[in-house]
Nucleic acid binder design. Structure first.
Length: 898
RNA sequence: GCGGGCGUGAUGGAAUUGGUAGACAUGCCAGACUUAAAAUCUGUUGGCCGAUUGGCCGUGCGGGUUCGAAUCCCGCCGCCCGCACCA
């Protein structure tokens, strides 16, 4: 167990003091400016970016893992001769700052800037290879002013517009809520019942790019399939047919969208969404319908409610003609299961082949008309028949017999019916998307002001560019402090801010008080990093050189919104001339890292309520029995109070057996959260072991894309290993000039180079670390000479560099390496040395390993076969017979089939 | 409901992508050092049988393809993620 009181730990054997060494090397890197990125057209660039943090005020292990991964790549690429850009900044607008101001007073700006300061101070000891000269925060006018320039450009290019939209309105907080902020129909903060209100809001025309954004995914081979699939689903392309149903009363026809035009003859009613314009028009005159529609809307917002909601409908009394059978009149119903946002908000119901329509038809006694039946057997009674679209069925009621043969699959019938309807002018084939335009208006203070003015005469007028940035009112100066205690947007209550002359005609106008969604800020920061101080949003030369991001790293939780918005923004910025066409897909490669989890320690109080304990408050009694139910968690303080030493194995065993101790359950690891106290503070870890240990551990235990469980034992092991590695350097001086293991060690070194290189290239940092363990163990046991040991350790230092940069630098210096290790080239594996000249070749008999022989690697196939067959074990298995077959894979295996 | 992923020792996980399953690490056990503990070092550690050489079984379950399957195919079971009354 480490000494608790010395802070940074000094190892008594090696004298390695992580704290001192880390500070020393960070200063050395800083002074040499090794991570400062300067465009150099003669040098191949590499842009590494991790999703920038929200300045919550404290870093957590998730940050450590995320930024360490990026740092490994950045340092590795630097060593491989790339001109690396590895920037860092702050996603600094957002609600927490406003909530803090509301709760504790003060201003969002001060709160945010103070948090950035502390978080930066916490981040810097990690020793990241970040070019801090490029740092920026999105809440500064220097950044959001350029964002306003982008907004005006987007406005000119018709990429952003205003429209009335139904939004979730919190009547108490007087603000719009995102869908995620509505919980069970109530505002997440106020608890007030959320109303559906129609407000005029700003929208980005992202849905116009749906097709492009979908197609672009195919050109991103280095993105995880999972993320691409999520975006595909989100964009939600569907091909179908739009057709009109004429009204019997001569009113405007009802437009209907369907992806199953082949079932048109099975239509038995028309369904309208509760929000459909026709529904609204009818409800205006009919109180009974208005009431029914209101009932349908209520409770219909949450997913859980939708899942269990019963089908409801109202007959409008209207009748429409079936387009292919004008004599047939279909009733028009308003139905709760039809959504206005998809298709035209109106459907034709075909109960025979749609379970929802069937449910509805059964409830309201509407006819069921089958279009096809199974090739064999009877159609199900009272249930929709929905076979896979690839399954052939018998068409008894096709759209037209000329279009659909008697036996055809649904797929074929859809295609044929669609073409037939279009040719006949009865409908038109359309492609629709689920993706909706991105509403960016927020009724909040702490965001980027939307640079437009509402003029009573001119309407919505863009602010003049020379007046940008439109800054947020200074909350510490003119006009006094900003009042966050009242609900609603404080900007609405600041006439000195929002009263402004119209930029076009000069008459008194009102500045837009909505601010931008914070997703806007993070949709282009990657481009800004290439020229963070430019007087325009981007600098042409800088984006041409640095874009795209070669490797982007972040959490899967941003798989859809942030990454989709960024892809939209890059395209939009290209249209306005801020990015080259080649940057339309801004992230060449994406990696989504897993979370850092920790076991949860929970006991119960006198009322059987859960009580949680911090990991550092516990010790564990060893469990000897294999599979004995896991370690027993003991409260350290309780043990000490009982006069027992938590450090003693025996005392812990003894205490574990006491009946009166508090029982602490060890619950399965979950994402670290303060409420369950299963958190480990990176600062405490760095203070105790140094940053290298923290970096090493978050990489070592699990593949980067999976969750990693933080364990005290694992962190301890990482620290021990790094200390041991540092101690290995002392072996050099004691060794003789040459040793018997020189050759073997050299080969081990080159195999490790190859292994670590391949592992880093494949984002398998845990495997890279396993390789480094192997090499260190080999060096530790090797009877090689001084030169060989020194060379091996210098390679080890360079291979360790991306993960444990400070220790590596220290070793490099101790071994007499030239300059800084951070700028030393990556070692190259010699293929001659990576291949062992002698290999142990397994011999299988009928596919089961029965023997093995050591042979020269280059031995010809025929010789291998002969040797294998002459082995006693093989001869015995053959029993004098001739083998049926012998498979020889040189360097791998010999398999004798008898 | 739709789409996708995963299942390997007590535990986290390796496996050069079809070629010695269990690398590396944690934990446990044993030994050395120590008055004792902690720390450190060394060794053992998939299961069953066998004193040793060795044998049998083994990657969720059941089948299949193959000389050979953790890996490919089919069907189950379990867990996880995304989307969801999407017409």
């Amino acid at each position: 167990m480490a000494d608790h009181n010395t802070g940074y730990n000094t190892d008594h054997n090696t004298g390695y003091n992580a704290g001192a060494a880390e500070a020393k090397w960070q200063a050395a890197w800083e002074q040499a400016g090794v991570f400062r990125a300067t465009a150099d057209p003669g040098c191949k660039k590499y842009y590494v970016l991790e999703m920038f943090p929200y300045p919550s005020g404290r870093i957590h292990m998730g940050h450590v893992r995320n930024y360490t991964m990026g740092d490994v790549i950045a340092r590795y690429k630097l060593a491989n001769g790339f001109n690396v850009l590895h920037p860092m900044g702050w996603d600094a607008f957002g609600m927490p700052a406003e909530n803090a101001a509301r709760a504790q007073g003060g201003s969002p700006r001060d709160w945010t800037l103070a948090n950035i300061k502390t978080m930066k101070a916490q981040l810097r000891p990690l020793g990241l290879s970040v070019d801090w000269t490029r740092e920026f925060a999105t809440c500064t006018p220097a950044y959001y002013g350029q964002q306003q320039v982008l907004f005006l450009d987007f406005l000119e290019h018709d990429l952003v517009y205003r429209k009335a939209a139904v939004v979730n309105w919190d009547p108490v907080d007087r603000t719009v809520l995102a869908n995620e902020q509505v919980i069970d129909g109530r505002g997440w903060r106020s608890g007030a019942a959320v109303e559906q209100r129609t407000l005029t809001q700003w929208f980005f025309r992202i849905s116009d790019m749906a097709e492009e954004l979908l197609a672009g995914l195919d050109r991103l081979p280095a993105w995880p399939d999972r993320v691409k699939r999520m975006q595909q689903n989100w964009i939600g392309q569907s091909r179908g047919v739009q057709l009109a149903f004429d009204r019997a009363d001569g009113g405007a026809p009802i437009e209907v969208y369907t992806t199953r035009p082949d079932t048109l003859m099975g239509a038995s009613f028309i369904g309208l969404a509760p929000d459909h314009p026709l529904t609204r028009a009818l409800a205006a005159d009919r109180p009974d319908m208005a009431a029914a529609v209101a009932r349908m809307r209520r409770g219909g917002t949450t997913e859980a409610a939708l899942e269990t909601a019963e089908k409801q409908g109202v007959d409008t009394g209207l009748r429409v003609r079936h387009p292919l059978a004008p004599d047939r009149l279909l009733p028009v119903w308003v139905a709760n299961f039809i959504v206005m946002d998809y298709g035209t908000g109106a459907i034709f119901g075909c109960p025979a082949h749609d379970p929802r329509d069937m449910e509805f038809a059964l409830k309201y006694r509407l006819p069921v008309r089958a279009v096809f039946r199974p090739l064999d057997g009877m159609p199900p009674a009272g249930a929709a028949l929905v076979p896979p679209k690839t399954e052939p069925v018998r068409w008894i009621n096709p759209v037209a017999r000329t279009a659909v043969p008697e036996v055809a699959t649904g797929e074929e019938a859809v295609r044929a019916s669609s073409a037939w309807l279009e040719a006949r002018g009865a409908g038109r084939a359309v492609t629709r998307y689920r993706l909706r335009d991105w509403g960016l208006s927020r009724q909040r203070y702490w965001g980027c002001p939307i640079p437009v003015v509402h003029c009573p005469d001119c309407g919505v007028v863009p602010e003049r560019r020379e007046n940008l940035p439109v800054t947020l009112p200074r909350d510490d100066g003119r006009g006094g402090p900003i009042d966050f205690s009242a609900p609603g947007n404080p900007l609405d209550r600041l006439p000195h801010w929002h009263n402004t002359p119209c930029p076009a005609c000069g008459t008194p106008g009102r500045r837009e008080t909505d601010t931008m969604d914070t997703f806007v800020d993070s949709s282009w920061y990657y481009a800004r990093f290439t020229a963070p101080a430019a007087a325009t949003p981007t600098d042409r030369a800088a984006v041409n050189y640095w874009m795209n991001v070669d490797q982007y790293i972040g959490g899967v939780e941003h798989a859809i919104l942030h990454l989709l918005y960024s892809r939209f923004f890059a395209r939009a910025m290209h249209r306005c001339g801020h990015l080259p066409a080649s940057a339309a897909e801004p992230f060449n490669a994406l990696f989504t890292q897993g979370m850092v989890t920790h076991a949860i320690y929970q006991s119960r109080d006198g009322h059987n309520r859960p009580v949680y304990h911090y990991p550092e408050d516990l010790v564990f009694a060893p469990v000897s029995a294999p599979g004995g139910g896991g370690p027993v968690a003991l409260l350290r303080a309780e043990m000490e109070a009982a006069g027992l030493a938590p450090e003693s194995d025996r005392h812990r065993q003894e205490f574990a057996g006491r009946p009166d101790r508090t029982r602490v359950a060890v619950l399965p690891p979950a994402k670290m959260s303060k409420s369950r106290k299963n958190v480990v503070d990176p600062l405490a870890i760095i203070d105790r072991y140094g940053a290298d240990t923290a970096r090493w551990f978050v990489l070592s235990d699990s593949p980067p894309d999976r969750d990693v469980e933080w364990t005290a034992a694992g962190a301890e092991a990482a620290w021990k290993f790094l200390r041991r590695v540092r101690g290995l350097c002392d072996r050099v001086t004691g060794a003789a000039e040459n040793g018997p293991d020189d050759g073997a060690l050299e080969r081990a070194v080159h195999r490790a180079i190859a292994g670590v290189t391949r592992a880093i290239d494949g984002f398998a940092f845990n495997a890279a670390i396993a390789q480094l363990h192997g090499l260190a163990n080999t060096i530790g046991k090797s009877a090689a000479g001084r030169a060989g040991l020194r060379e091996a350790l210098m390679v080890l230092a360079r291979l360790l560099g991306p993960m444990a940069p400070h220790l590596a630098e220290d070793m490099w210096e101790a071994l007499g390496g030239e300059g800084l290790l951070a700028t030393a080239p990556w070692p190259q594996a010699d293929p001659v040395l990576t291949a062992e000249e002698r290999v142990i070749l397994p011999i299988q008999i009928n596919g089961k390993r029965r023997d093995a022989m050591e042979v020269a690697r280059a031995l010809p196939q025929a010789d291998l076969e002969a040797r294998a067959l002459s082995r006693p074990a093989v001869r015995k298995a053959l029993g004098g017979a001739v083998p049926k077959k012998v498979i020889v894979v040189p360097g791998r295996i010999v398999n004798v089939v008898v």
